[in-house]
């Protein structure tokens, strides 16, 4: 399993290092802007950091689906499927590597966010005003919601878990389309249509299994995260079983 994890990481390491490298450069720009009190550099670096957080997490996830698709549809896939490992282990390694990478990236962005907010707070009083404005907006959306660090952490965990659940649907859609339409040019398009359909089903299911009414915000976010991880597990089991029984490479 460790060998599978090692090579899964190797396949995607370049993009992840590039995302982290760009993030460090943007962070450096933020610190320089802060030290020089240059609002232009500060503003630009904040925008870049936010874009990198959204784009980086999105790309790291999408890349893992593309790697799976490539492993099933190109000759390089023989390297993986010739090994004496079951589809459960092969897919498990892919999902584990991707889940851990996403959590790690999310953790880095979260830590930088907290750090930068604290640093900015110490330098500019206006940041306190902005923070309170953001809190007001959150209360307008949901009056029960009081945003503190633990609630924000639960929210971030819920978002990343939701993204992992979406990726597990993408894995399933990719495997189904390859098993049924291997070698066809529209294989990828079929996978995309299937992904949309399965996402709708999962979204309806998650609405149906709503958290108990008395739950506070943090509990609701954790409930949602748990639900998404259970969906991911179910999708993983269905996908791996299909790979084991039906997939030819």
């Amino acid at each position: 399993m460790m060998a599978l994890l090692k090579y899964e990481l190797r396949k995607t390491i370049f993009a992840k290092v590039a995302i982290l490298g760009a993030t460090m450069l943007a962070q450096l720009a933020f610190l320089i802007g802060l030290a020089l009190k240059n609002t232009q550099v500060l503003g630009t670096s904040i925008v870049i950091l936010v874009l990198l957080a959204i784009g980086g997490l999105s790309y790291a996830g999408i890349q893992s689906v593309l790697v799976l698709h490539r492993d099933m549809n190109t000759k390089q896939g023989y390297m993986l499927y010739m090994t004496p490992h079951s589809s459960y282990k092969i897919l498990g390694a892919k999902m584990l590597e991707n889940g851990l990478s996403l959590m790690l990236l999310a953790g880095v962005f979260f830590a930088l966010g907290v750090l930068n907010l604290e640093l900015a707070n110490a330098h500019f009083n206006t940041v306190k005003i902005v923070t309170s404005m953001v809190n007001q907006i959150i209360i307008m959306i949901d009056p029960k919601l009081t945003m503190n660090v633990s609630t924000f952490l639960a929210l971030a965990f819920g978002i990343v878990s939701g993204w992992i659940a979406n990726l597990s649907i993408a894995f399933l859609a990719s495997v189904v389309s390859t098993a049924l339409f291997a070698g066809r040019k529209w294989n990828l398009a079929a996978a995309f249509v299937l992904f949309i359909l399965l996402s709708i089903v999962q979204s309806k299911l998650s609405e149906w299994i709503a958290s108990p009414e008395h739950f506070v915000a943090m509990q609701r976010f954790l409930w949602q995260a748990g639900l998404m991880l259970i969906f991911s597990l179910i999708n993983y089991l269905v996908t791996a079983t299909l790979m084991e029984k039906k997939l030819s490479v």
Binding site: K75, Y78, M79, M82, P84, S86
Partner: peptide
């Protein structure tokens, strides 16, 4: 899966990771 460890197969195409 278990028989894969008994079989050394060489595909006709180039299959090493680039």
């Amino acid at each position: 899966v278990s028989t894969r460890s008994m079989v050394a197969y060489m595909p006709t195409e180039g299959y090493f990771y680039q």
